[in-house]
Design a binder for these strands. Structure first.
Length: 552
DNA sequence: CTGACTTGCGCC
DNA sequence: AAAGGGCGCAAGTCAG
């Protein structure tokens, strides 16, 4: 398949360098205002677009109604390759390597700034692409790495499309919900009346007339003055207390949180024209998970999800994977016993059925403890039994933890590397018998060492889970496009939300059943891509709904 | 005053 | 004795 490298040449033109499979290169100068038409034309036959950064190219193409099938995102690929233990990093060295290291994605908030002085314009995408291809070709694990890079780049396309489309959101539903819980929208700077009433009760109950319940420090002093033995003001802590003022305080905290995080200001800021508009940030987390920017898109509370409602004549298809990470762990470790338990729709029940544990609660706490490094209490007690039953799965996370504690780098199945640890505990000089850094007590260093081990333990599972999800998303994106017939991305079934192990597709109602089918097929395909013939299942919970709140 | 940090809580 | 991973966000707090 031909690759076309796009290079900005000032604001007015783009240079398109088409690399044919036989090695020849054809260079075309395209005026910027003709780029969308050029891309649309070349998309008629398979091609891979190579560009410095999807967030710098794709939004404008989408705005012009042009969708691309595949790309190579040099910024994201660079980030993966620079850290991968599968890569000879010296092959990536060039004059502008540090520039690629530092390159940040852009969001619409920056858009006004970046054409004038964009650091990306000081980078050479042609040379970077050559170096990346050479590094990939020289890797002993190039098949896995190539899959990771393709998935990462597809994710970048999906993210831009989701950002472009926005999540359907009915402001009037959201407002009704707020008014019902908090009272009418107050004047700016005032508390809603329900909060005011609760505050009166709280002040009275704790004999603290001027108390500002939004101040943790002030609140803590008031609680302690009332004789309550607390060291913080978390809801979970307060729930343990027996005091007549606590119910009102808990209610206040809950409603206050709703107001601050997803209240009227949130609506004003993030919802426009019936869409919640935030930015998905592929590769925003070291493990490979996505981050988000704006409106807290990764933590939309279930409380306000009723407002996420499909357009008239459309539906949401909401799908999530049950227990993604334990299944991924079974697959990547080749643990047949755990994979057997994963044959069940509920992996934890599968563990009970096999006799590994007695109750589902035990299974859950044990597995989560194994993946997060919890060794206290219940989950700690489960470990010997789990280790006997699932030696390869538990062995894999234990090895990752030990490697992290030594200061070593660990990697995901497809080769994403963990960061190199910094900090006094990780100084290699300590191993060479040199005195440890002044002023850092041994206990502190040991605690930091174990904390890093928990991070690397989780990294391998969370990161491989993110790879599975990326493959799922990438394959689903293409299947949805093929379902659609004609029209732009948001006129066909299209992704509107993605969060670690869950997707939401917005689709014309008559295609909803087809979308369900494609969601399932793409999940199966993701399993094949990562684990080949190894028999580990990824069952989905799928719902066709009008509102996001109806799912799950 | 701004900016950096802390606290607390939402999501997976 | 203590020992649970990853985020984003808003408000409060505090130093400069």
């Amino acid at each position: 398949m031909n690759r076309i490298v796009l290079v900005r040449r000032g604001g007015a033109a783009v240079e398109a360098r088409e690399h044919a499979v036989d090695g020849t290169v054809e260079v075309t100068r395209v005026p910027s205002d003709e780029l969308a038409g050029f891309v649309a034309d070349r998309e008629l036959t398979p091609v891979r677009w190579v560009w410095d950064d999807t967030t710098r190219w794709y939004p404008a193409l989408l705005a012009a109604g042009v969708r691309v099938e595949r790309c190579a995102d040099l910024r994201l690929s660079h980030a993966v390759l620079r850290r991968s233990p599968f890569v000879d990093r010296s092959l990536l060295d060039g004059d502008d390597t540090t520039g690629w290291d530092a390159l940040q994605p852009v969001t619409a908030a920056d858009a006004a700034l970046f054409p004038l002085d964009d650091p990306a314009d000081r980078l050479d995408p042609v040379a970077a692409h050559d170096r990346q291809q050479a590094a990939l070709a020289a890797s002993p694990e190039r098949a896995r790495l190539a899959l990771l890079l393709a998935a990462e780049s597809s994710g970048a396309l999906a993210a831009a499309e989701m950002t472009h489309a926005g999540l359907p959101w009915r402001a009037e539903v959201h407002e009704r919900l707020l008014t019902g819980l908090l009272g009418p929208r107050p004047a700016s700077g005032r508390r809603p009346e329900v909060l005011e009433r609760l505050l009166v009760d709280i002040r009275e109950a704790f004999a603290a007339p001027g108390l500002n319940a939004d101040s943790p420090a002030e609140l803590l002093r008031a609680l302690q003055a009332a004789g309550l033995p607390v060291g913080d003001t978390r809801s979970w802590t307060l729930e343990q207390l027996d005091h007549p003022g606590i119910p009102a305080l808990l209610e206040y905290k809950k409603l206050s949180r709703l107001l601050q995080a997803n209240g009227w200001n949130w609506l004003d800021t993030w919802v426009r024209d019936g869409r919640f508009r935030s930015w998905f940030v592929p590769g925003g987390v070291v493990t490979g998970r996505w981050a988000s920017n704006g409106g807290g898109a990764l933590s939309v509370p279930t409380q306000v999800r009723p407002a996420a409602t499909a357009d008239d004549g459309w539906r949401f298809v909401v799908a999530d994977v049950a227990q993604l990470e334990p299944r991924v762990l079974a697959g990547m470790s080749g643990d047949t016993a755990m994979a057997e338990a994963a044959r069940s729709t509920d992996l934890y029940e599968g563990m009970v059925a096999s006799g590994a544990v007695t109750t589902r609660a035990e299974a859950k706490v044990g597995i989560l403890g194994a993946m997060y490094g919890g060794t206290r209490g219940e989950s700690g007690r489960m470990m010997p039994r789990l280790t006997r039953r699932y030696p390869r799965a538990i062995g894999l996370v234990e090895a990752a933890a030990r490697a992290g504690e030594r200061g070593d780098v660990v990697h995901t199945l497809l080769g994403r590397g963990s960061p190199v640890p910094t900090g006094a505990w990780a100084e290699r000089s300590a191993e060479l018998g040199e005195p440890p850094e002044e002023g850092v007590p041994r206990e502190d260093r040991d605690r930091q060492r174990r904390a890093w081990g928990r991070f690397t333990r989780n990294f391998v599972v969370q990161g491989t889970g993110a790879e599975w999800a990326l493959c799922w998303l990438a394959d689903l994106r293409n299947r949805l496009w093929r379902l659609g017939g004609t029209g732009t991305v948001d006129q066909r079934p299209h992704l509107v939300f993605f969060l670690h192990d869950e997707v939401v597709v917005h689709t014309p109602e008559h295609l909803a059943d087809d979308v369900v089918e494609e969601v399932r097929r793409s999940a199966a395909e993701a399993g094949r891509l990562l684990f080949g013939g190894f028999p580990v299942d990824f069952p989905l919970d799928v719902a066709v709904v009008r509102s996001w709140a109806e799912a799950g």
